[in-house]
Design a protein around this nucleic acid. Structure first.
Length: 602
RNA sequence: CGGGGCGUAGCGCAGCCUGGUAGCGCACCUGCCUUGGGCGCAGGGGGUCGUAGGUUCAAAUCCUAUCGCCCCGACCA
């Protein structure tokens, strides 16, 4: 039996000053974790117990569809070079050298290692499909670790990989994971949503994220309460309400207006007494990506135009142009492409690339020298069909009026490159969309052929023909399940976890251990409950009741049995932490009581 | 990477401006007391003031460098 007096549960009355989010404060205060360095934590007794429960649930469910492996966390450079990600991962990957000077890295994820096994071992379609998973420590050198266990540099992940002979098979594997993930999060007692996710520039065809809404989250979820549409910010779209156009002025053609010092959209809208919706916003970037061999960075100019009140979504833009990074243009670059200064930029006079050149990079097209002023011009869908707008004239202190896209300027491609805003119409049913911050706890992803192809995995199909297996990858953040659960259920005194993932389901608290009768009764109750399969903690510390109650409220245990005065009447109190509701239960019926409200942990 | 803040006892903080033997609350230890919401009294232990260098008779305090941690930003030209 676990006796509190003998355990190391270092609870704190005060949270560390640098803890911001609830889960961080309480994980530290409740003695679950201690910080070792930025984004690196030690898990103490209670924390580890909770993680074990979570991992067991994950394991039990995953075993229904796959096989558990355990791969190295330390990887040789070569494996990552084979997939091309040695360079792609950049500073996010921890790298080190062994004594011989050979390059190694700490695994951020294990597509490469799993594919390496598949490449060496899988020979025939008869061996497919395969689903392999592991629960492993991952290392990511986050630019900015934060929010306690939410964004860290070392964490535990369940990652799974599927290998199928064809897309139909992948779909089956994908759906199996989707089902199992729902079961896992259900068992963990989380309220979650499944959303459409951005599947990256790498040709993934389908991807969904499992999100828990919480203010502590860093991801944005766009959702419709009416029809169930849900997507992340990188993927979400909306229907735009029509905009009232400005009347054409003069001969209807663009003309310059002197706008001294009006360098922002707010200034211009005020100056012309119009809505920012009638303005064309210019956003100018240099898109970057590493060259094939990783030896240098390739750059192309990318210029986006959006409605004045819209915000560009850099991920959408980056995906569109197939780049890996964006940086704002500098003054000389603005001068080169626009021949005008910041604050007065506009589309008229630009040299847009042809549609076929979208996402092409200079190195690849060396043989076809082009006009150095050519840029990729991206028009947001929100500007299509608009007329008589205002934009910068590419000339200090001047703007154009009467600008109509398509008539007065052209573009490389029109696309959705903006952020949806709360209240805009749902793309499916037209209801107002809501936007919430959320934490990503799981992600399922049809990878396609990226790794199997680049790393040379091949099997023979029925006809004896060599084919490349198609892959999926599927992740669950173990720590994030706990943090999300805490974010979801806490108050000023502490938090309460779903019994399935709490370190203990029940804490038995004798109010006074120097009272022999109370202590003996409490021990008996704890023993009986334990025998019945419940995880029980006996708070046998020689402390005042107030101290024990405060600690019990703090540490996340969902039920408390208070053994106090009423034992003389043969009853104890059962307290439900979440609602603070209290109920007298006769000692003889205590096991039965919990058998009704809880399922045994063992 | 850019900007800001903070490093003083396990935790939370004061002291620094104006240099002169390092303090408070909680926690911890001992004893007494108390026992239904972080109780009371008495006594006690614990700190290279992040690190290194400099200025000075004297540095937690002033200067320089460095390390660490936290927050904001890295879309709206």
């Amino acid at each position: 039996m676990h006796r509190w007096s003998q355990l190391f549960i270092p609870t704190l009355r005060e949270a560390p000053a640098d803890a911001e989010v609830a889960s961080h404060k309480f994980l530290v205060r409740a003695g679950y974790v201690r910080q070792l360095a930025a984004g690196i934590y030690s898990y103490l007794f209670l924390g580890q117990r909770s993680f074990h429960k979570i991992m067991n649930i994950v394991r039990e469910e995953m075993d229904k569809i796959g096989q558990e492996f355990f791969l190295p966390a330390l990887h040789p450079r070569e494996v990552w070079e084979a997939s091309g990600r040695w360079t792609v991962m950049g500073d996010n990957m921890f790298r080190l050298k062994d004594r011989k000077g050979a390059d190694l890295c700490l695994g951020m994820t294990h597509e490469e290692i799993m594919t390496e096994i598949a490449r060496k071992e899988l020979r025939s379609y008869k061996q497919l499909p395969q689903i392999w998973y592991q629960i492993q420590t991952k290392f990511r050198d986050e630019p900015r670790p934060k929010s306690g266990l939410l964004r860290v540099r070392q964490f535990t992940m369940k990652d799974a990989y599927s290998f199928d002979i064809d897309a139909a098979g992948l779909d089956v594997s994908y759906q199996k994971h989707r089902k199992v993930y729902c079961d896992i999060f259900e068992r963990c007692g989380l309220k979650y949503v499944v959303i459409d996710a951005h599947s990256g520039a790498m040709g993934g065809s389908q991807s969904e994220e499992f999100m828990v809404r919480t203010p502590a989250g860093e991801d944005l979820v766009v959702s419709c309460e009416k029809c169930g549409y849900a997507a992340n910010m990188e993927k979400a779209t909306s229907k735009l309400a029509p905009v009232e156009e400005l009347p054409a002025e003069g001969d209807g053609k663009p003309f310059e207006v002197h706008t001294p010092g009006m360098a922002s959209i707010a200034d211009i809208a005020a100056f012309f007494k119009m809505s920012p919706k009638n303005d064309i916003k210019t956003v100018a970037y240099m898109a970057q990506k590493p060259s094939e061999d990783g030896s240098k960075t390739l750059e192309v100019p990318v210029i986006a135009f959006l409605r004045g009140d819209h915000m560009v979504n850099e991920t959408k833009l980056l995906t569109l142009v197939k780049g890996s990074e964006l940086r704002p243009m500098q003054a000389e670059e603005l001068e080169k492409y626009f021949q005008g200064p910041a604050g007065y930029l506009g589309p008229i006079g630009l040299v847009p690339a042809a549609k076929e050149q979208l996402g092409t990079w200079p190195d690849a097209k060396k043989q076809a020298p082009q006009n150095p002023r050519v840029v990729q011009v991206i028009l947001d869908f929100g500007l299509e069909g608009r007329q008589n707008m205002v934009c910068g004239a590419n000339k200090l202190d001047y703007h154009f009026k009467n600008v109509t896209p398509g008539r007065d300027f052209q573009w490389t491609v029109a696309a959705d490159i903006r952020n949806v805003e709360a209240g805009e119409a749902c793309p499916k049913c037209g209801t107002g969309l809501r936007i919430d911050t959320a934490v990503e706890i799981g992600h399922i992803f049809k990878l396609g052929y990226k790794y199997s192809e680049s790393m040379g995995a091949r099997v023979l199909d029925k006809n004896g023909k060599e084919v490349t297996p198609i892959m999926g990858s599927y992740g669950i953040g173990i720590e994030r399940i706990l943090t999300a659960a805490i974010e979801q259920s806490n108050d000023e005194n502490g938090f309460w976890l779903p019994p399935s993932i709490a370190p203990f389901a029940i804490v038995v608290t004798p109010t006074n251990v120097s009272d022999e009768n109370l202590l003996k009764t409490a021990e008996k109750i704890a023993q009986d409950l334990e025998k019945a399969g419940f995880d029980v903690l006996l708070d046998d510390r020689d402390e005042r009741p107030g101290v024990k109650f405060k600690d019990a409220d703090l540490v996340g245990i969902p039920y408390r049995v208070t053994v106090g005065k009423k034992v003389t009447e043969g009853t104890v109190e059962v307290v439900l932490r979440s609602t603070r509701t209290m109920q007298d239960v006769s000692i003889s019926a205590i096991v039965e009581h919990f058998q009704k409200v809880l399922s045994p942990s063992r």
